[in-house]
Amino acid sequence: MKHVISVLVENEFGVLSRIASLFSGRGFNIESLTVAETEDKTISSMTIVTRGDDNIIEQITKQLNKLINVIKVVELTESVQMAREMVLLKFAVNSGPKRLELLRLVEVYHGRVLELGARSLIVELTGERAKIEAALDVLAPFAIKDMSRTGMVALARDSHKN
């Protein structure tokens, strides 16, 4: 099962590598990992998407907590999380009907066109993972030239404190 874990860490050199080596050393898997500073510059926030049964997830959260630089670990279950992912896509499409079709689909997924060139197009899509996956399925036939995904970022909702 997929799990989202939010981790607050001290913004110190080597912390990312401690987390990464914890996962690799103990055979846990990382599907995606994002890091950025929080409003407090000495603290960073990570969102880790991982897979495993309940025992594994329990071990992961305990092991993360055990790291000295980790301040807080929260497992965000689906009902309490607000999660988003962003993807940038570059398409090789000339102006013409194909491009129009593409733009229409991008709109369906509430995407934004960031750059419109003569032979290419850069699009930004933001949303829940499922929506991104669905959009990528639909857009796949349009010759995606390049793609960059952020991985998931998530926050606990206030109405469902956990």
Binding site: N55, E58, Q59, K62, Q63, N65, K66
Partner: peptide
């Protein structure tokens, strides 16, 4: 004393 030891 180490929670990671428990139920590992």
């Amino acid at each position: 004393i180490d929670p990671t030891s428990i139920s590992k």
